[in-house]
Nucleic acid binder design. Structure first.
Length: 267
DNA sequence: TTCCATGTTCCGCA
DNA sequence: TTGCGGAACATGGA
């Protein structure tokens, strides 16, 4: 379920359990997942180096190997990516594409069952973000309501599609854009230029709340969100846990979207 | 068997 | 220029 909260959880796992350890073995089964690099390059960039930093921008996780430039491992989770850190005597997780055995008897595995993820090696997270044209991360330092307003300025597409567009905002995907709009009471098909000031504020507050709360609620890899959220009720015809309306499913900006037919106005 | 999937990209069209 | 729909990618699960 990889959107910002899942990638952030993975980043924290790496930070807390794998950093400052030296990579002893690199096991790579990339099969088409490598982007702009080769198996040998990734292997030599990681082997015998210490993992020294874990960063995130949007849905991309960056892990620095050693202190040199050009040594950031980049992982994109696609639809099914996960990170697991486990004791090396435990079995390797299914669908592991990259496994780092660390000094001290711990292993870090990146898994990806449906191979839509990416493994890369980049100069720096900043350089990658710029080159790729990714938008700002709404949970990044210093990004606030005013920045959010500016990012939406002049846009005419649906609010849902806009929130999910990684070149506009990085990190929001299908599930959490639905959740934020549900909590803000805004219909996903509402055109951005039809949102008034108040609604933009509502969307912003709901979005940041949803993203950070989900990170907070997460224990291991199991998201536990309140029953008052949309997430546990994403089913056509379900009762809205907020107002007694009905949850509807529709295609918005190319994705299955769920929303309440009563309290989400507009569209 | 068929459909669907929390992601991204590319193409054609408005 | 912006944005949308649809197809494609790979593969597991309902």
């Amino acid at each position: 379920m990889p959107e910002m909260p899942e990638i952030e959880a993975a980043r924290r796992t790496v930070e807390e359990r794998a950093l400052r350890r030296t990579v002893e073995t690199v096991s790579l089964r990339p099969a088409g997942l490598l982007v702009d690099t080769s198996e040998g390059t990734v292997r030599s960039a990681l082997k015998d180096h210490r993992l020294t930093a874990a960063r995130r921008h949007g849905k991309h996780l960056f892990v620095r190997s050693g202190e040199e430039r050009g040594r950031w491992l980049r992982l994109h989770f696609g639809m099914t990516g996960t990170v697991r850190v486990y004791e090396s005597d435990e079995p390797e997780p299914d669908y592991t594409r990259l496994r780092l055995d660390l000094a001290g008897g711990r292993s870090l595995a990146w898994t990806c069952s449906r191979k839509l993820g990416e493994i890369g090696l980049v100069e720096s997270p900043e350089a990658f973000v710029q080159e790729k044209g990714l938008g700002p991360d709404p949970t990044g330092d210093g990004f606030g309501l005013q920045d959010f307003r500016e990012v939406l300025e002049g846009r005419r597409g649906t609010i849902k599609g806009t929130l999910m567009n990684q070149e506009i905002l990085a990190g929001v995907g299908n599930a959490y854009s639905d959740e934020a709009l549900f909590q803000a009471g805004v219909h996903p098909e509402t055109s951005v230029d039809e949102l008034d000031e108040e609604q933009v504020g509502e969307v912003w507050r709901a979005l940041t709340k949803v993203l950070w709360k989900t990170v907070e609620y997460r224990t291991d890899d199991e998201a536990r969100v309140p029953g008052s959220w949309l997430l546990p009720h994403r089913e056509d015809g379900a009762d809205c846990p907020r107002c007694g309306g009905t949850i509807r499913k529709a295609r918005v900006s190319g994705r299955s979207s769920y929303f309440c037919d009563r309290h989400q106005e507009g569209g």
